[in-house]
């Protein structure tokens, strides 16, 4: 390698490390601050200080643990819901024939263009009128309804791309449509199911405005809403506050490292169709 090439490479690496440091600085600051007492914070805002105040985490955990459980229930239920419901519908739209198939499919994907803010007020009144306020159903059902649209759009294409011979062979052997769906079609689209599930987990876990509106009693609130309340309560007591933020980030980080490869590949795939 030429000297110039090596110099260029080092510059690239240096630039990337610099950008990474700037990107992560707020999170590094979060971790450092989460281990300080208020006094330590005001004494020196930049550097870690000893002794470490691990009790900040204890305090934060007590405050946010119930919220975390609610978020967990909502996220798991809506993710399973989206995967099941959209798998069934996408398969029917891709590989079964029935009257009204096109019109129904277009009615589904038309919703890709309807912004969530448009339906915000009427959906809120609906939830209120049917008495689902302050229940986790108020999140789970709308999340499945909204989340399935993009999933059906993506998965229908995958189901349609499977070769018909696969299904033909099974049907000749007398397999039912249901058996074909469960044992042939679904296993073949598993990678895309994983991507869809991850995206749904992220959006359910992170949604803020909707749970803020429909969950007004503290005991059913989700994590991100709880965090904002927590911030209101502790305001400048940065130690426990930042410990709470750090704890709230852990579940999704774990998921990310478990499913990293499918996550990165799944998202990158969108690019090649562009």
């Amino acid at each position: 390698m030429t000297r110039q090439g090596r110099l260029g490479m080092s510059l690239c690496a240096a630039a990337l490390v610099g950008l990474a440091l700037l990107t992560f600085y707020p999170f590094i600051f979060m971790i450092i601050t989460s281990l300080k007492s208020a006094k330590q914070y005001y004494a020196n805002i930049w550097l870690p200080a000893w002794p470490l105040h691990l009790e900040n985490y204890q305090q934060a955990w007590t405050a946010i643990a119930p919220y975390m459980l609610n978020s967990f229930v909502v996220t798991v239920a809506s993710t399973i819901g989206v995967v099941v419901v959209s798998c069934l519908a996408a398969f029917a739209f891709a590989r079964m024939s029935f009257p009204g198939r096109e019109i129904l499919y277009y009615l589904v994907i038309f919703l890709l263009m309807v912004p969530a803010v448009l339906t915000l007020v009427p959906t809120f009144l609906l939830i209120k009128n049917v008495g689902l306020m302050n229940t986790l159903w108020a999140l789970i059902l709308p999340y499945i309804a909204a989340g399935q649209v993009l999933s059906i759009f993506i998965m229908r294409a995958f189901f349609a791309s499977l070769p018909e011979e696969l299904f033909e062979a099974a049907r000749i052997d007398g397999a039912s449509e249901w058996w074909v769906f469960l044992n042939i079609a679904v296993p073949l689209v598993r990678p895309v199911l994983v991507t869809i599930a991850i995206l749904q987990v992220l959006s359910s876990w992170n949604d803020y405005v909707w749970p803020f509106l429909v969950l007004q009693s503290d005991s059913v609130q989700t994590l991100v809403v709880g965090l904002v309340n927590f911030q209101g309560r502790f305001y400048t007591d940065y130690g426990p506050l930042m410990a709470g933020y750090a704890l709230a980030s852990i579940p999704l980080l774990i998921l990310f490292f478990v499913a990293m490869r499918s996550f990165i590949e799944g998202l990158s795939q969108g690019a090649l169709k562009a």
Binding site: G147, L150, Q200, L202, S203, L267, Q269, K273, A274
Partner: peptide, 17 residues
């Protein structure tokens, strides 16, 4: 064309991401 078509809302996985 893309699989990550724009969809409205906080629930739009691709767009939100």
């Amino acid at each position: 064309e893309s699989d990550f078509a724009p969809r409205g809302g906080a629930t739009a996985p691709g767009a939100a991401l």
